[in-house]
Design a binder for these strands. Structure first.
Length: 216
DNA sequence: GCGACAG
DNA sequence: ATCTTGTCGC
């Protein structure tokens, strides 16, 4: 069997990055899907959580569990985590108006963080929600903190509860101004935006059940 | 070459 | 991401 080759992944990212759309507005927003992954040893637990908007209440969720053979390599996160996220999204069997992914979008060394990777493949508007910076320089404009990449504003830095900084980046087909407009509406008293928070909570909850099933 | 490095 | 108890604070 072929093994994961970082050099090939790099080439693919550069090609895919050219297809990513940094602009766009969400004309109709009702279904938001949060994607996240948890681990139990080598087993990955992918979660696709559907929330309504603007209430941000969990409507339903889908799970995908499988072995994750790709190692974690900074910058190549999508190759490790996206497969199970696609599987979970597929199992959800819903058409999302917007997808929020744990991690960065275009604020990535080659312009293709996991949020952009997933938005591009599913051809859906997507936004990345990360807890730590990865790429780009900070710049404050009119009271808003941005992350600039190649001269273009690529992410907005939000302050979750207890002052925690969260990086909301362009994933695909959502412009920076649209993210600035929507950003505040995604927070509900947690450090993370609600779609990501809910998906993360569920992933850890399901992870525990999977861990028990593994031990026998 | 050295250090940094989403989850 | 995950390994991990109690503990400080809203």
């Amino acid at each position: 069997m072929p093994v994961f080759k970082a050099s090939n992944a790099f080439r693919l990212q550069k090609l895919m990055a050219q297809k990513v759309v940094w602009e766009g507005k969400i004309s109709y927003l009702s279904k938001v899907v949060g994607l996240d992954l948890a681990f139990v040893g080598r087993e990955g637990v992918g979660i696709a959580a559907l929330l309504n908007y603007p209430e941000l209440k969990l409507i339903k969720y889908a799970v995908a569990v499988d072995e994750v053979p790709i190692p974690y390599v900074p910058g190549l996160l999508a190759f490790r985590e996206a497969p199970l996220m696609f599987a979970a999204y597929e199992a959800l069997n819903e058409d999302a108006d917007l997808i929020m992914v744990d991690g960065h979008g275009v604020t990535h060394p080659r312009g293709l963080g996991i949020a952009s990777h997933i938005g591009l493949v599913l051809d859906k508007p997507s936004i990345g929600a990360a807890k730590k910076p990865l790429y780009g320089s900070e710049e404050a404009v009119e009271g808003v903190n941005y992350v600039v990449v190649g001269g273009r504003r690529a992410a907005v830095i939000m302050e979750g509860s207890k002052g925690k900084r969260i990086y909301l980046s362009i994933g695909h087909k959502v412009g920076i101004d649209e993210i600035v407009r929507l950003a505040p509406t995604f927070f509900r008293g947690h450090s993370l935006p609600e779609p990501t928070y809910v998906a993360d909570r569920i992933s850890k909850e399901v992870r525990r059940k999977v861990a028990e099933g593994v031990g026998r």
